[in-house]
Design a protein around this nucleic acid. Sequence first.
DNA 1: ACGAATCTACCTACTAGTTGGTAGGTAATT
DNA 2: AATTACCTACCAACTAGTAGGTAGATTCGT
Lengths: 195, 195
Amino acid sequence: MNKPSNTADDILAAARTFIVAGGYDGFSYADIAEVIGIRKASIHHHFPSKVDLVQTLVRRYLEDAVTGMTELERNVPDPPALLRTYTGFWAQCIEDASRPFCVCALLASELPALPPEIAVEVRAYFRFLSGWLTGVIERGAGQGTLTISAAPRAEAEAFMATVHGAMLSARAYGDTAAFGMILAPTLRKLIPEAD
Amino acid sequence: MNKPSNTADDILAAARTFIVAGGYDGFSYADIAEVIGIRKASIHHHFPSKVDLVQTLVRRYLEDAVTGMTELERNVPDPPALLRTYTGFWAQCIEDASRPFCVCALLASELPALPPEIAVEVRAYFRFLSGWLTGVIERGAGQGTLTISAAPRAEAEAFMATVHGAMLSARAYGDTAAFGMILAPTLRKLIPEAD
DNA sequence: ACGAATCTACCTACTAGTTGGTAGGTAATT
DNA sequence: AATTACCTACCAACTAGTAGGTAGATTCGT
């Protein structure tokens, strides 16, 4: 099997938690070393530089999103249900406080100060997500299961922006319910005769 | 007049530029010292600690927003025009690259890692902006100049989230036009018979 | 089958540079 | 005389990253 020591995975998980909390400059190798019970230098064995670490983190984040969306689309073919499942996933994360923010949305906020190797991965995530949403909305509009008032691409971009902004608001208010409160009317406008 | 050496203002302006680029941990006193041609220690004369500096920066940001909105509302009483002016302001900032991001929206993304004195100011900004937008939308809905499909408060939160998310997307795509592209359909849904 | 070489995952100990912040001095203004 | 706005010269703590070593597992040549 492919199990080359799960320490590397532990490091990535800790790094994700720190990044979600405080961004790229908000954590150090020492912080990670402490929480996973290893020495600082040992992290350099797995990830020679901080750029390497965050780059593989973001790259894997995108890969997981791609496979996740692909699988989701196979199980849930209905466009309205897809959008509801997508926002529901984040609502769940925010309520759990398990992952109250999309790593890439957070890193996008500090894009100008990010090492270019990481910036390029963050941009790739935005392009993928917007492309996926455009496809879903286009399909829903064609079927008549979604009602749109602009081009699918524009609707998708606006939808994605609302989701990201709602994460920001939920964090600002310290209110986990804020995310759902914001997304409910947004979904209602897209999905006809929703309760 | 009230002009107690404009060095303090220069420091605040430089700090704002750095924060907008890379967040709270993304700049140092040394960075500011270099761009405004002063020694690092001299900044401590104006702002004893980094928390002091950023706290007055955010507090002033909120004050400016309050006076700006009040004045705007006196000159432009029409709710649809108010929303258009508000988004237009940010579209302008993003196109100029002069201030491509709301300081508070950016700081909200790293709220859990922020010193509490600053976090509280950021939250105050969100509450103010959401309150102001709620008032505008409520008034517009009452007059029939805005069409809403949820409670004014929910519409306001969704609108604010879309604006903040659109800033993120504009940054991610490196495309200044993305902001306007996202806000156009959002405004069109609120404003009846817009061209 | 068996010792040798290699590899993995960690360690201690260090480096050069940066961080926010302090002490104390100077020159000009009030 | 006091205040303001700056300065030089520090400091301890922390930053990412390196050098070099060790114990254990794996692989390889014979």
